[in-house]
Design a protein around this nucleic acid. Structure first.
Length: 646
DNA sequence: CCTTCATGTA
């Protein structure tokens, strides 16, 4: 339960009293302007955005009005000037208006806009007559400043002293839950607030319910979010966008797209906007549906949303992730304005397609253009290096990130370095990177070390990584499977069985492999054991035939990923039924000769599928593009673009 | 006075 904390009080953060340096500095000066005129002049100067002059004239007004101060405050927010803000605040205090709750609310919002949360808090603490507006303003300010805990603390305080919260309080109380850093179950907190909302009869309010959807989404509780959304009596674009984003962010892309279609067909009051489209494009990207993505691009053009930066960035990223780097690049080249996200999208696009040098080239162009790289830029460019094995380039970039760009390496950056070194076979160096880390190595770092051990079959190091990983991610079946794979490859059957038993004892299951392919705008998904597909027998027959022909040409099925004690023929049958092979066979039968077969897979490609697909690309003379969890593989003439390095 | 969105790693 939440422990009630008495709110902290802040020291006076205001600047010392300033004296005005203008000849009009005293409000008792003998300027001949009429007082009522001065109020109006100050107000009109504020409306024109001439804050400096307004401030100069203000001291001449013997009776400034609340409205004059309000305009001054709004001016400061707009001009982003903290020093002017403090001057205005000082004047309000001097003139005895500081206990006006209306102005206090405005001051809190002003300081919040100027990222000066201490001053906002000072105003709040000094205001005796704390109206609901004042409370809402400070909770909003704290939540936006990332001080969720403090915001929640005030919310509980206002409940305790009997101030009734309203529909304006809850959106920011919920935001506070998302930014809170307390080690208590945060989902429980959202549920608790949800109960308060119901008690106040606010659950059907559009803004409150929308924030509730978003809060549940942020904690990965799709079903709760969905329930709130379904029960909303009234929904607007924002509500629809929040629910679509909830699906897209939580790996439920098909539901995101379905909901978008429902939004388009069933409602007349909610027209998708740029925010909606960004989430929809993200959903298309994560399932690599080029067909859906193009449809959405068409919609973006028809709605005139194609000049909005976030949308264009989402398009660049979507095309790259759907396998069409060319279209992505084309859009990128035609952008009038590019921000750091645009560049990052392009860099990672090259990275996932295995074009490491090009990714670095784009990175260099970005620097020459004068855009400062951020932390994500380096994750992208380092990721690009690891896909191609650019070890020295990777090391150099990592150093320059720290020394030139003063970006402190995060666990993700270290994970990239471990991946670059480990994948290239420098396992000791990779292990040393982990040892020398100045922050706690998280699951990502250990995970990439384990991945490298899998490739190079290093049992000892893998065990070390798993020791930490099983602790950090007890429910991630993938780690157990990787370790079992490594034992299997090292022919350590006893140990392998132990890991398998451990996995079973924990009630965890291997994530089933799934591949899908889009034919004529329809998506067909395959699982390894798939009797639902009407063509399944035809697919199996084709694969058996292909397998036989391949064996004549020297193909030896690689069955080491099969962790069951079966004879060789049975193992071969299992791997021949891998979802990716089914999808390839389906593509061969159901698409036209000359068309590229595009397949997406939810896991990393297994080695056997990789060599079979290489063979098929030559044998059937077809280009096959496969996106696995990490990257693209472009198969052509019996060769893969990854150069068997993946 | 309030609500939705973009880039990356394993």
């Amino acid at each position: 339960m939440w422990a009630f904390q008495s709110p902290r009080t802040f020291q006076l953060p205001l600047l010392p009293k300033q004296s005005f340096q203008t000849p009009l500095s005293s409000k008792h000066s003998s300027v001949s302007l009429q007082s009522s005129n001065i109020n109006q002049i100050v107000q009109s100067l504020c409306r024109q955005g001439n804050l400096k002059q307004a401030l100069q004239i203000l001291p001449n007004e013997p009776n400034p009005t609340q409205h004059t101060y309000e305009l001054l405050i709004l001016s400061c927010s707009r001009r982003k000037s903290l020093s002017d803000a403090i001057t205005v605040h000082r004047q309000i205090v001097d003139d005895g208006f500081d206990q006006d709750p209306f102005l206090a609310t405005k001051l809190i919002n002003m300081y919040s806009d100027l990222d000066s949360i201490e001053n906002a808090r000072y105003v709040f603490d000094k205001t005796h007559n704390k109206t609901i507006f004042v409370w809402n303003a400070i909770i909003r300010a704290l939540a936006l400043a990332g001080q969720g805990d403090e915001a929640l603390s005030l919310y509980y305080w206002m409940n305790q002293i009997g101030v009734p919260s309203d529909r304006f309080t809850y959106p920011y109380v919920l935001k506070a839950c998302v930014t809170s850093s307390l080690p208590v179950s945060l989902l429980r907190r959202v549920q608790e607030i949800h109960a308060h909302i119901v008690r106040h009869g606010l659950e059907s309010h559009v803004h409150v319910a929308t924030t509730l959807v978003d809060a549940y989404a942020k904690f990965g509780c799709v079903s709760y979010a969905c329930r709130v959304f379904d029960e909303m009596p009234e929904r607007n674009v924002v509500s629809w966008s929040a629910m679509i984003a909830c699906y897209a962010k939580n790996g439920r892309s098909f539901e995101a797209l379905d909901l978008f279609h429902e939004m388009m067909t069933r409602t007349h009051d909610a027209i998708p906007n740029s925010v909606t489209m960004v989430s929809v494009l993200q959903a298309c990207a994560s399932i690599a549906s080029l067909g859906q993505g193009k449809l959405m691009h068409g919609y973006v053009l028809r709605r005139g949303l194609d000049s909005i930066l976030t949308v264009i960035n989402a398009l660049v990223s979507m095309y790259a992730k759907c396998g069409s780097l060319k279209i992505g690049r084309h859009i990128f080249d035609r952008m009038g304005k590019r921000d750091v996200v645009s560049w990052n999208s392009m860099i990672s696009g090259y990275g996932i397609h295995g074009y490491g040098e090009e990714a670095i080239q784009v990175f260099n162009q970005m620097i020459t253009t004068g855009i400062s790289p951020n932390s994500i830029t380096f994750v992208s460019v380092l990721g690009a290096c690891s896909h191609v094995g650019l070890v020295n380039e990777g090391k150099r970039l990592f150093q320059s990130m720290i020394q030139e760009y003063r970006i402190f390496p995060s666990a993700e950056h270290y994970a990239c370095m471990v991946d670059i070194l480990g994948r290239a076979g420098h396992l000791d160096e990779a292990a040393k990177v982990v040892e020398d880390m100045r922050i706690e190595p998280g699951p990502t770092v250990w995970g990439s070390l384990l991945g490298a051990c899998r490739i190079h079959c290093n049992v000892e190091l893998a065990e070390r990584a798993c020791l930490r990983l099983f602790e950090l991610e007890p429910k991630n079946a993938g780690n157990y499977v990787l370790l079992a794979d490594i034992y299997a490859e090292a022919k350590m059957w006893e140990e392998m069985n132990k890991v398998k038993k451990l996995l079973e004892a924990k009630g965890l299951q291997k994530v089933p492999g799934c591949s899908w392919i889009e034919i004529k705008k329809k998506i067909y998904a395959f699982m390894s054991v798939d009797e639902l597909n009407p063509q399944i027998e035809q697919l199996h027959a084709l694969l058996v035939q292909l397998s036989a022909e391949m064996k004549d040409r020297g193909y030896i099925p690689d069955t080491k990923v099969v962790l069951y004690e079966l004879d060789q023929t049975e193992k071969e049958q299992i791997i021949l039924g891998h979802s990716e092979k089914l999808a390839v066979a389906f593509g061969l039968i159901n698409s036209n000769y000359g068309e590229t077969i595009r397949i997406t897979k939810n896991l990393r490609l297994c080695e056997d599928c990789h060599s079979v697909t290489k063979f098929i690309s030559k044998f059937a003379n077809r280009e096959i593009l496969v996106r696995d969890v990490n990257r693209f593989h472009h198969f052509k003439d019996g060769v893969c673009s990854c150069g068997d390095y993946w």
